[in-house]
Simulated scan of single mutants.
Amino acid sequence: TFTISRQIVENACQLNGIDKSARRDGLQILRDAGRVDVAGDGSVAVLGATTQAVLEATVEIFDDQRPSSDEQAIIDLSERVSGKPMKRAEAEEYISDTHKLVKADATTLVDLSKKTALIDEEGERSNGILFNSHTFRDGKYAEKAHRVLEHLKADERTLLTEVQDKLSRSGAMYEAEVERMLGSDLYKRLVSVGLFDRMEVSNSTESVGYIASPNDFQKYGRPFEEDPIDDAKALIASLTYGQTRSNSVRGRITMPEALIRTLVRGDELAAGAGGIRAIGEDYRELEARQVVETTEQSRGRFTMRLLKKDVGELAL
């Protein structure tokens, strides 16, 4: 829990075009949802302000407000373009058909989505590409990704879907496995346009690449700062290494979700076992990022604590 002064709240609302009545109503909704407390002096105490809590509160409040077809259409569109850039004309036709909107309303909604930064557009309006700047680095990458995806053959689309489904379930995959599933040529094309993120886990034995999908982590943006998203991907990469490359002698991970929950609770990992060798070798990047803290308990055997709870929650 942390407290924001009335002046900061008012300044933030002013910068984002939120008038006094909207601010008052919004704070009341958050208060009713148990997410904030508003003091007599106008300061706001934010309860449990983590990335996960922000997303959960947003979903709950949105559903409770009985969203209109227009609002549902905006959410639907932003969800679709987060995974794949779309031509503006195609997007307008999609939300018009799916949500029973007249063409003029569909056009207005796309403009509104751009104005509120839910989506971005690259190119001339008549031939623009809609995309999510959180999952695609910029408009040029979005254009390239759109061209690559549009020209995929049927079998290549199937392979891509298989990899995306697997990434959605596991969070990260061994780079060599992704390349094997897609084939070297398709893999290189997709990585080159930013459809996948590559991370690396290094220890005294080897350096191994892992692949994650930006769409699984950052399509909703980065609510507080840049680091948590990248830290969560690095954590998942290290855990995936422990599942796929480590052996039982140095410490093999068999229940990654339970391991993350242990860390999120604040418990010291491997304390009961007197430490594990792999902890001292596979989490150096995370320690440098100050995501975790490792402690040598005996020669070559380490325990670990999570320093950034938010990162662990994102990784779950």
Rank of each mutant, 00 (worst) to 15 (best):
Q14L: 07
G48V: 04
P214C: 13
R169A: 00
A142K: 05
E200Q: 02
V44P: 13
Q28Y: 05
T50I: 06
Q7G: 05
E200Y: 01
L269E: 04
T205G: 01
L47Q: 11
E150W: 05
E293I: 11
G40E: 15
Y210P: 04
G34V: 03
Y283H: 11
D138C: 12
G272P: 12
A273T: 08
I75A: 13
E156H: 10
S248M: 12
L30D: 02
D70H: 09
G17K: 07
V44R: 02
Q297L: 13
L27R: 15
S68H: 08
D64R: 13
V249Y: 08
A22V: 14
T1N: 06
K153G: 09
R198W: 01
L109D: 11
L101I: 02
A117N: 15
V292W: 03
A172E: 00
G183F: 14
A45N: 01
I253R: 02
S43R: 04
E90L: 07
A270I: 02
R299K: 07
S78N: 08
V193W: 08
G272S: 14
V193K: 04
N215M: 10
F217M: 08
I119Q: 08
A232I: 03
Q52K: 09
E143R: 11
L109Q: 09
I279G: 12
L167K: 00
R80T: 15
D19E: 12
T51C: 06
D32M: 07
D216W: 06
Q297M: 13
T158Q: 15
T161F: 08
V38G: 15
Y283P: 11
V110F: 10
V208W: 03
A273R: 11
V54R: 06
G183R: 05
E90N: 15
A106I: 07
S96T: 06
D310K: 05
L47K: 13
E281C: 04
R189Q: 15
L27C: 06
G139S: 07
I253Y: 05
L182K: 00
E257M: 12
E175A: 03
E122G: 00
Y241M: 05
L190W: 02
I253K: 04
K84A: 07
R137E: 00
I253M: 06
G48D: 04
E56K: 14
I18P: 10
S170F: 11
E175C: 01
I279A: 10
K103A: 12
E257H: 07
R252I: 08
E92K: 03
T303N: 04
T303V: 01
T107F: 07
Q297I: 14
G123Q: 01
L118W: 14
F136D: 00
S82K: 03
A106M: 11
Y94L: 10
N215R: 12
A270V: 04
G300L: 02
V9Y: 07
H134L: 00
S170Q: 10
L27K: 14
R261Y: 05
D197Q: 06
R6W: 08
E150M: 10
Y174N: 02
K103V: 10
